[in-house]
Design a protein around this nucleic acid. Structure first.
Lengths: 336, 336
DNA sequence: CTGAAAGCGCTTACAG
DNA sequence: CTGAAAGCGCTTACAG
């Protein structure tokens, strides 16, 4: 490859001058700059950003660590991240953990070695897999899921609110009282808050949530499926399900269908997170839709502020309200 | 940060020895290696991969350039890419072009500057935006879309076949003859092949495709919507639509719904690409489902072979057959 | 087995 | 305005 030295020699100046001319730094005569630029063009010079990164100690790269890019919620979030990052000249490395804290820890370490300027993390653990980060001073912004006792900025959805409104809707509009919840693991803030919102709504309605209604597992399709099967096969006759997230909802509906249980006629269902594109096609799931794209862009903006070293003292916590979209799975619009 | 020099000093050896001990190179006594490792641990040494990359001229990074990570087809492909790449110690930078060749060209240039070891590209142009690459000898594998007269390996779906079978199904099973096609731009190999497959099936059935049935535009939801509106409002009474891809299908169905045209009762519809997760929930679209995940993993494997410099003379072209999934939108299973 | 030295391709104080 | 020099943090022939 042609380097800055080749350009320098050809243009009859020093490498330092080439560097300055190319970077647009002031302190180079216009004539010299033009000559350097012309030679660079002629030689098809392309700067080596690795060398620049090493020298400047900045890679203009951020990492996005999530559980699964294939989950539409994260897909949309990732798109927001990429858009905003590239707008500012940053590239994004994507990491899928599949909800495995060991994979998460490994990615964190790898990203640190790669000298990313900052990390956006939706952690699948209580934060233990992020311990490496707390010993460093690399900027981090938590997205979607909070980690207790961390000092990092975060941008998350208001899960308690969403769960509360969704559950309340089942109670007040549809008269349901026996409502089950299929939740992600309680180490995750989203799960805890959703269980809380669910519980609050029930209690306000004078219903004490029964233990058999509460399934705590993972944010995976298969768990939604298994929990629903157990619920429907052995459990008491439950009238509705609150699915902890979209993939759990898919599993739940699949199980119900297999057992010949109709949604929403025999079993109402509400869920967190939506399926964007497809919801246009099949407006079926009643859901608390989080502004995933915005979460991504906001998180990047906050991260860039930290990367730039702007002196922001306090830890910032941005909480975004989900939009409650009433469709058919809860029992509304039964005619459409 | 602690560097190799810090470790060297503390361990009482030279930086070269530290490097060798850490990299597992042979030619270091076991005793020295242990001591170095212990010191590295003690000092929480973390290697700087940027420095290594500069020296070794290898970044262990690949770029994936696609039009939109938000399209489920690309989402799944991207997951395949990330899984396979990380399995081999490579990280992936994602780039969304939104079908804009200028954005594509800009990303290509940026990725080259970042010294990625190879690129996976689903080009949105006839290849002109890739011209920078042909002057370099960086490994490239084309995915999903071929570029004419390039010498790069590629892994694509068999679009002609998929389109042919889908169209034939409409003709033979459902007796449709007036079938429209809403296609992506003809600069793309996928579009061309799908139009060819569609045409072949019609011709074999003795039907001459009419000009008013053929819509050539972009792989975007809005184009599917606009084309379908025009088709239904002004056109002759068409009996079925072949949608060029999944997002076009979404737009088409939205338009039909707005105009009170029922799918499949009033208008049959088939499409390319599927919606994974959601198809479990709503098994509606009859589609040629491409093995997106496999396309991603295969493409990475081929790219890694090139990166490793394995001497493969010939250009390789892997063509994967889509799976034809018959569901309801074509008119089958009308009872379910 | 180990070290001194050069070099990967830039950037940037420091002089002039 | 321009250049010589040092340095970012590694790796790797080359000696010994």
């Amino acid at each position: 490859m042609t380097t800055i030295y080749d350009v320098a020699k050809r243009a009859g100046v020093s490498p330092a001058t080439v560097s300055r001319a190319l970077s647009g730094a002031r302190g180079v005569s216009e004539a010299t700059r033009q000559r350097v630029l012309a030679v660079a063009q002629e030689l098809q010079y392309s700067p080596n950003y690795i060398a620049r990164s090493l020298k400047k100690r900045q890679t203009n790269t951020i990492a996005l660590i999530i559980s699964d890019i294939t989950n539409p919620f994260f897909t949309t979030l990732a798109r927001g991240v990429e858009d905003k990052a590239s707008e500012h000249g940053f590239n994004t490395i994507f990491c899928n953990t599949d909800e495995d804290p060991r994979v998460e820890a490994a990615y964190v370490e790898l990203m640190l070695r790669r000298q990313v300027d900052g990390l956006l993390i939706s952690s699948c653990s209580d934060g233990r897999s992020l311990s490496l980060l707390s010993r460093r001073d690399v900027p981090v912004v938590l997205v979607d899921r909070k980690v207790k006792s961390s000092s990092w900025d975060c941008v998350v959805g208001d899960s308690e609110y969403g769960a509360y409104v969704l559950t309340k809707h089942l109670i007040e509009v549809h008269g349901k009282r026996k409502i089950a919840i299929i939740s992600g693991p309680l180490v995750l803030s989203t799960s805890r808050e959703r269980v809380e919102g669910y519980t609050r709504a029930l209690k306000e309605a004078g219903v004490t949530p029964r233990e058999e209604w509460i399934f705590i597992g993972t944010y995976k399709e298969d768990f939604g499926y298994q929990a629903t099967r157990r619920l429907l096969e052995y459990g008491p006759s439950v009238e509705a399900i609150f699915a902890g997230n979209n993939v759990i909802a898919v599993g739940a509906i699949r199980a119900a269908r297999e057992l010949g249980v109709r949604v929403p006629e025999d079993l109402a269902l509400v869920t967190f997170d939506d399926f964007d594109l497809v919801s246009t096609l099949f407006p079926f799931l009643t859901a608390a839709k989080q502004p995933a794209y915005t979460m991504g862009t906001l998180a990047v903006e906050m991260l860039l502020e930290r990367i730039r070293g702007e002196k922001i003292r306090e830890r910032r916590e941005v909480v975004l309200r989900p939009e409650i979209i009433i469709r058919r799975s809860c029992g509304c619009h039964a005619d459409s």
